[in-house]
Design a protein around this nucleic acid. Sequence first.
DNA 1: AAGCAGTGCAACCGCGGATGC
DNA 2: TGCATCCGCGGTTGCACTGCT
Length: 261
Amino acid sequence: MGRQPCCDKKRVKRGPWTAEEDKKLISFILTHGRCCWRAVPKLAGLLRCGKSCRLRWTNYLRPDLKRGLLTTDEEQLVVDLHAKLGNRWSKIAAKLPGRTDNEIKNHWNTHIKKKLIKMGIDPATHQPLANTKAVSQTGTSMQSTITTKSAQSNDMAYLLDPKGSCSRDMSVPTDSMEQSSRNTSSHDLDPLVNWLLEAELPADEPWLNFTSSNDDDFSSIVGQSPWDGTTDWLLDYQEFSMGSSRLIDGARIQNSDGSNF
DNA sequence: AAGCAGTGCAACCGCGGATGC
DNA sequence: TGCATCCGCGGTTGCACTGCT
């Protein structure tokens, strides 16, 4: 069965999003909420395919996103969940509020995977790699721990705690803070952020009307729009402040499946 | 200062599942 | 039941940025 392309590729713009396009997409969703993505670009006046709009929104513009590198706790959770779930990034992301599957996938491939390999652990199986220098250097006790209990979250603490017992075996990149500040500074200069900080958003935000189950959860749990008619959430983009989002996350965690993880 | 290689992230692609008719 | 359509996921790519020589 032939499948039509999601859009006419000749007539859609591709590549990085401009601030102007972001404005249009945000304005549209603020005004109308999320409807079918296929219709969004047309209605919002964007020369993008719906898929691209959805991706941009979910991975970058969504207001409940955390920004910056994953915390050690989050990394540990990712490792733990990956041991259980494999490359099911969306499932993993569902356990990390404010993180996207794309973000976690990227972080896994660029950071965690390398750490595991360096330590002689197969990222795919979470089992010790055979015949590697790392294995011989790391010692056997840790490997046995990994092998027998890799599905338990605390077992990966050595990986994520540079001050931990295995820290001598890790040449963990020390540029995390640098990377974080780099990302932060880029947002400081983002004209979109400036625009949004100045924009007057609709007081009757349509967020509560989202059809997505996730967002229904979100709004119902929070009890009120996290934006409250303001653009305060954008400040989180710049400061990576976990304060307000923590409250949201905590509520979401408790309500998503009734249990903490 | 310029060139090169490595790194990290945003975005794209194609497939499969879900849904509606 | 089969087909058409849409959405979301996971893998991959492209490119900007950084550090090294």
